[in-house]
Design a protein around this nucleic acid. Structure first.
Length: 226
DNA sequence: GACCAGGCACATC
DNA sequence: GATGTGCATGGT
């Protein structure tokens, strides 16, 4: 078996172990594509539980109507999303994104979906406050585009399993998946969701590592964190 | 009371 | 181009 086949098998095995533990997760936890996009911005370096409160507050105030959100003052918008942290910065980011959403696509998700992936990705990355992970989360989870999302947990898991050095850049890690697992939107969706859940439940506190679904794939005795 | 969370932009060297 | 720092709340 070639090393490329071994890599493919390892990535599929990692998926199967996580899937066996959690089952299908059917991400993203959002009711609408717009909510997913706003959540992608709000969850930057922030626990999802805090984002949920912010989205609930924003929904209460605006019904998540993009025009109503844009009409909020900076102070009102920041107050709504306070619980998600970095609220002044994120208020600005939301406004930048929603202005783009209106000016470029007339607030239409469908119009956005019609665009090719690469063009959308370039547009998103050009916006203040949207980097690679946020752009790819929006593309995959809100717009059903075929792109693999890399995050801090992905980095840890790849490094810990010796599949890539923890200093490897975002694109290298993304390529590792996109070139070695089947190109399937549902698979990309589940794989990233499973990585995040595994990371949340088993990487935060070291004693829990013993029950991690990926534990059996690791050399015995070593730490879970890189 | 530390430490961390589903990043990103910007300054500095 | 690599590395450091500010942003800020809420849970463990």
């Amino acid at each position: 078996m070639s090393s490329a086949d071994t890599l493919k098998n390892q990535l599929i095995l990692i998926f199967q172990k996580m899937f066996g533990h959690f089952g299908p997760l059917n991400w993203w936890p959002g009711d609408s594509p717009l909510e997913v996009m706003l959540g992608a911005i709000l969850t930057q370096n922030t626990a999802w539980s805090n984002v949920e409160k912010a989205l609930a507050s924003l929904s209460q105030k605006t019904g998540l109507d993009p025009e109503k959100i844009r009409q909020l003052s900076d102070v009102e918008l920041a107050a709504c999303i306070r619980s998600s942290g970095y609220f002044n910065q994120k208020a600005k980011k939301l406004r930048v994104f929603l202005t783009y959403f209106h000016d470029r696509y007339g607030d239409s998700i469908e119009a956005m979906k019609e665009q090719p992936l690469e063009r959308l990705r370039d547009e998103l990355l050009s916006l203040h406050g949207i980097g690679p992970e946020t752009a790819d989360s929006i593309l995959l989870y809100a717009l059903d585009k075929l792109i693999f999302v890399v995050d801090a947990y992905t980095r840890r898991i790849l490094a810990r399993h010796g599949l890539m050095h923890h200093t490897a850049d975002y694109h290298a890690m993304q390529d590792l998946f996109q070139q070695n697992i089947p190109p399937d939107i549902s698979l990309y969706n589940e794989y990233h969701a499973l990585i995040v859940n595994t990371g949340k439940d088993f990487c935060r506190t070291k004693p829990l590592c013993d029950s991690c679904p990926l534990r059996t794939l690791l050399p015995p005795g070593g730490p879970c964190m890189p």
